[in-house]
């Protein structure tokens, strides 16, 4: 899923400092699962913002709404009849949400309430880790099912580099050296020969480097499915 962190209250308050009436819009997708943009988080943010503004002697009127998803115009349209009641909107969704809102409600000021961080998953309660870089041409089967593009600090395709020590990456003792893991897994499976030889240059055109990407499914576009 897409993982995100909530922006600091200070940063959010600074964004809406001139607004008196706002709407906070949550999302029931990924950000609900990673506990930053669901109903609970939207309610808490509204509440602490009101308290903070009251303390400043500058009350703010805040309503809330949680959409099924903010990355789908069908759901984004659900606030079309109320959005004009507000000066601005804070979106608690990944970076896709506030853009879908901005594109549909062109006159409205839409603030991002989250920092979108990565594609990943929870490794333990309250801890999420990156797994995918969205490069557009998955090759994890060449690397014992693990992605060095997303998980090696240098995205090495022929690692590990000289900074790998005791299974840990040189950049941070909390970061696993994914190349160490790949090699150990291959050794254990008796498949070290898979790591003999040079992997050629990656074609980055399918990644963000080729420009903003678009995915078209003709059968859906034509309404056949």
């Amino acid at each position: 899923m897409i993982v995100a962190d909530q922006k600091s209250l200070k940063e959010i308050l600074a964004m809406v400092k001139d607004n008196k009436k706002i709407l906070i819009v949550g999302c029931k997708g990924c950000v609900t699962v990673c506990n930053v943009g669901g109903l609970k988080e939207v309610e808490i943010l509204a509440s602490i913002m009101k308290i903070a503004r009251k303390k400043q002697g500058n009350d703010i009127d805040i309503d809330i709404k949680v959409l099924e998803r903010q990355c789908d115009n069908e759901y984004v349209a659900e606030i079309s009849d109320i959005i004009n009641d507000y000066e601005a909107v804070i979106s608690l969704a990944c970076g896709v949400g506030p853009q879908f809102l901005s594109e549909m409600y062109k006159e409205k000021i839409i603030y991002p309430g989250l920092n979108t961080t990565f594609f990943g998953g929870a490794t333990e309660h309250g801890v999420w880790e990156e797994r995918c870089a969205g490069c557009g041409s998955c090759a994890i089967h060449d690397f014992a099912g693990l992605c060095p593009i997303a998980r090696c600090a240098k995205s090495l395709m022929n690692g590990p580099c000289g900074g790998s020590s005791d299974g840990v990456c040189e950049i941070n003792k909390d970061t696993v050296c994914i190349w160490d893991t790949i090699v150990q897994k291959k050794i254990k499976a008796g498949q070290l020969e898979d790591l003999i030889g040079v992997k050629g240059l990656k074609n980055w055109r399918t990644a963000r480097d080729g420009g903003p990407r678009r995915s078209i499914r003709e059968e859906l576009v034509q309404g056949n499915i």
Binding site: A153, K154, S155, L156
Partner: peptide, 10 residues
């Protein structure tokens, strides 16, 4: 921003 378009082996 780190580049790492290619690695040392490449």
């Amino acid at each position: 921003k780190n580049v790492h378009d290619i690695d040392s082996m490449q």
